[in-house]
């Protein structure tokens, strides 16, 4: 029988179907008694091979480039049924190499088009619970990097990113970013950044709607974190967010708050050059704001001489014309400030 199968090459859809059957098997057989079964081992090996085959169809290999027709067939069959769900649920049962292959397959499928539609996006919209599983993956040391990589690919779809942003789990990222394991924390930070920068209109809408809790958490947990990396990444990301034109409403609101100014000024005086520079890029928005509230003005005036002295020696490592120009502008703004009556 085996010889018979060999003679007939399997189509991409065949491989997907076989993979699915094997995953269903893997999902079902869980008890330790079963796992000693040699038949199970054989099936798991077959599953690993199938997943590797899927990967080489999607990515090509050293001998051949991927064929778009084959990729489309594979993608269509993959999302016709719940294969993605099985991939995600069964991932912990696979060995390390197969997990990596599976992650790459899932990542690649996010950008495969079938009749110029990203059908992965459609599927995920109907199965948002899968995204919850992926996000919660950051709590599992073994799965975090795999689920994290899948998640980052999934949130390239705008609708998926919107779901994650608005889900209750969004709050958990503030903790994930500070997990002790650096690679997991860094992965969570990369996802967090992606969520808050990729889809402009969605981000702007999210920030406006969730301004209060989001920036309260952002300030207290990230910008005022005791962890150097967290502060450095957070202040950089804050700059990216506020300087984005689509977030101008949020920016205006942010730079009108005395508390925010206080936090940024504290970051300006950090001994870390990197943090100082990034903090400056946010601080300049406070100074450049043409409608500064009175309390912001009075703080800036009270600290004027110190700020001006700080900026006098403030330099980037490499010459940076834009930075120098910004600095000159900020210095000018601060020097020209006049006390205003409180409203």
């Amino acid at each position: 029988m085996k010889g018979l199968f060999k003679s007939k090459p399997r189509t991409p859809a065949d491989i997907v179907r076989q993979t699915r059957d094997l995953l269903i098997y893997a999902d079902r057989v869980t008890s330790p008694a079963d796992s000693r079964d040699s038949k199970r081992e054989e099936k798991m090996a077959e599953l690993s091979k199938n997943i590797r085959d899927l990967k080489s169809i999607l990515y090509g290999n050293s001998e051949s480039e991927p064929v778009s027709e084959a990729c489309a067939q594979l993608t269509q069959e993959f999302f016709r049924e719940n294969t993605l769900r099985l991939f995600i649920i069964c991932l912990p049962k696979l060995n390390l190499e197969t997990r990596k292959d599976a992650t790459q397959v899932v990542a690649n499928l996010q950008r495969q088009q079938v009749q110029s539609r990203l059908i992965a996006s459609d599927y995920l919209e109907k199965n948002t619970d899968l995204l919850d599983i992926l996000v919660a993956g950051y709590e599992d040391t073994d799965m975090a990097l795999h689920y994290g990589a899948m998640l980052r690919e999934c949130i390239r779809h705008q609708s998926v990113a919107r779901y994650v942003l608005e889900s209750p789990q969004m709050k958990k990222f503030f903790d994930y970013i500070q997990l002790p394991n650096f690679d997991i924390a860094a992965d969570a930070a990369a996802t967090f950044k992606e969520l808050l920068t990729r889809h402009k209109s969605t981000v702007a809408e999210f920030l406006s709607k969730n301004y209060d809790w989001f920036f309260a958490e952002y300030n207290s947990k990230l910008l005022e974190s005791t962890n150097y990396i967290t502060r450095r990444q957070a202040v950089k990301l804050l700059g990216d967010i506020l300087l984005d034109r689509s977030n101008s409403v949020v920016m205006t609101r942010y730079v009108s708050s005395r508390d925010n100014l206080r936090i940024l000024m504290n970051l300006l005086r950090e001994s870390s050059k990197s943090i100082q520079i990034e903090a400056f890029h946010v601080f300049k928005l406070f100074a450049a704001n043409q409608n500064k509230p009175a309390d912001i003005i009075s703080i800036l005036i009270a600290n004027r001489s110190k700020l001006l002295r700080l900026f006098a020696d403030f330099k980037t490592d490499k010459e940076d014309e834009q930075f120098e120009a910004d600095k000159a502008q900020v210095v000018k703004e601060i020097a020209a400030l006049e006390p205003r009556d409180r409203p």
């Binding site: 990596k100 990097l145 690679d183 860094a186 992965d187 930070a189 990369a190 990396i229």
Partner: peptide, 14 residues
């Protein structure tokens, strides 16, 4: 940027 450092540690641990 952290991305390159992140990639290194991730590569090494996987």
């Amino acid at each position: 940027d952290f991305d390159s450092i992140r990639r290194e540690t991730k590569t090494m641990s996987l």
